[in-house]
Design a binder for these strands. Structure first.
Length: 378
RNA sequence: GGUCCGUUCGUCUAGGGGUUAGGACUCAUGGUUUUCAUCCAUGCAACAGGGGUUCGAAUCCCCUACGGACUACCA
């Protein structure tokens, strides 16, 4: 298993334009894949149709393209493990949820949204800060663990709405070795019975993600730190499905933080401080609101990549200017830091300046001509 | 609140028992350039705090503080 052919994936959900953090995740995945002679896949995780945004998928493909991050397999690239869009894979997920139910590792739940909030309210007033559907509360809910078998069958036959939840073990330590953070251990008593399969017939992220990574032969999951808390659930899913032998290695990347203060970098920070947070221009199809991107602001993709690569990674030498080729040969997950990195727009401008200065006069002239024409200066 | 993760100049970071704690960005100063998103030089500036372990800790351990992520039939 150590010597499996490296396959990694970038799996965004098409809910809007890809921001800097997402591009960096894609970049690191790409660099890692190429460094090890492996494959870089692009998978669209659109299991929530209510959050679908028109044009987002094209935006992602176009942005990656501009950056020079080449997709080996996936949406827009094809491949033998497709389709690469989860909404087109809906037929394959249910059987894995069923498998989990058969092995008693998951169960049906019929609770209505109203009943769920009622339970949460009740728990809150009893002093529980964040109520969960878990070992202690599931006994009082409407599910196949509490309902008589016939009623469960009846409800199922009748076509009642139901979800499938994982049956979190009572008291089990789940450990895994994160490539960047080392051993991480969480006890299942702190985890809840997450919904695996939704009442609309689609899996949730957790199930779809694990099933697809398995089916697509993913060897390393390189993603943002915001996924660290759910990694134990994913590990448990691999074990429950009998796939522990081919479980990918996990690497949770530090977040990109806002330049001032703390917290994740967001679109609002860019607007507020006057710099783009997106690789290319984006127009919100619903509001018509426009957001500027680095491409249209005159940044070279090489500079953009170079800057992104250094936000959380460094080669351990004093070299700062790297071509994509050099990035590939130097990149290593070992040299990715653990702490979040504040975005530095000044440094970004500096990177671009370096690339600008290295252009020949001829190239520069060629690149500038369209602008001169536009201004009627030629 | 709970769980998990984190903490070296203002920022990105190197350094993993003995260093004048190094580099880059920003900033300041001087110089070069009668143009420039110049260039060169110099300078300012950091190990969160407290306990250990050790002859010796920025480096190892513990605690505290602070910060972040997560806590949906969202990803």
């Amino acid at each position: 298993m150590e010597n499996r052919h490296v396959r990694v994936r970038f799996a965004p959900s098409p809910t809007g334009p890809l921001h800097i953090g997402g591009v960096r995740t894609a970049l690191y995945n790409y660099l890692f894949a190429k460094k090890h002679g492996g494959d870089f896949l692009l998978r669209i995780e659109d299991t929530d149709q209510s959050r679908f945004v028109a044009g987002a998928e094209d935006y992602i493909v176009d942005a990656l393209n501009w950056c020079g991050i080449q997709v080996d397999e996936g949406v827009s690239a094809g491949g033998s493990k497709g389709p690469y869009k989860q909404s087109e894979r809906r037929a394959i997920y249910h059987k894995y949820a069923d498998q989990l139910i058969e092995s008693k590792l998951a169960y049906y739940a019929f609770d209505t949204p109203g009943e769920l909030t009622e339970m949460r309210e009740r728990m809150k007033s009893a002093g529980v800060a964040s109520p969960q559907y878990n070992v202690v509360t599931r006994g009082g809910m409407k599910n196949s663990l509490t309902l008589p078998a016939e009623e469960v069958r009846e409800r199922l036959d009748r076509g009642d709405n139901y979800v499938i939840r994982i049956k979190m073990p009572r008291n089990k330590d789940i450990k895994f070795e994160d490539v960047i953070r080392g051993w991480v251990s969480v006890n299942t008593k702190n985890l809840d019975d997450k919904v695996l399969f939704k009442s609309d017939g689609m899996p949730t992220y957790h199930l779809a993600n694990v099933v697809d990574d398995y089916l697509m032969g993913i060897t390393h999951v390189i993603r943002g730190e915001e996924w660290l808390p759910s990694a134990p659930l994913h590990v448990l899913l691999y074990e429950s499905l009998g796939w522990q032998g081919v479980m990918p290695k996990f690497a949770h990347l530090p977040l990109i933080l806002k330049p001032d203060g703390n917290g994740k970098l967001s679109k609002r920070d860019g607007d507020r401080l006057g710099f783009p947070v997106f690789p290319t221009n984006w127009t919100n199809p619903e509001t018509g609101e426009e957001s500027s991107g680095y491409r249209e602001r005159g940044y070279y993709p090489e500079a953009f990549n170079n800057m992104l690569a250094f936000l959380g990674w460094n080669p351990g030498t004093t070299q700062e200017l790297f071509t994509m080729k050099e990035l590939i040969s130097s990149f290593s997950l070992d040299r990715v830091g653990k702490a979040g990195a504040k975005f530095d727009f000044d440094k970004t401008k500096w990177f671009n300046q370096q690339y600008l200065r290295s252009r020949s006069g001829d190239d520069l002239a060629k690149e500038l001509t369209p602008y001169l024409k536009e201004e009627g200066l030629t």
